[in-house]
Amino acid sequence: MNIILNHRNEILDSEKDSLSVNELLKLKKFSFTRLIVKINGKLVKREFFDSASVKENDNVEIIHMISGG
């Protein structure tokens, strides 16, 4: 599957037509616990990480939030 991830083209190694946000995080080995996810410019709240789907050509933004201020 081809998507745009954080403004870059990304080829995902998956047989599926769509992935949940949690499946995408696992596939990309994103380990930060606090993050903001947007699909096609729209916020995906944490409670929908298992249900929201990422599909071919989607524009996905994953922003890590880390401590310090």
Partner: peptide, 10 residues
């Protein structure tokens, strides 16, 4: 804290 940053952004 990171969890507060996530909370306000959401």
């Amino acid at each position: 804290k990171a969890e507060m940053k996530e909370m306000i952004a959401e």
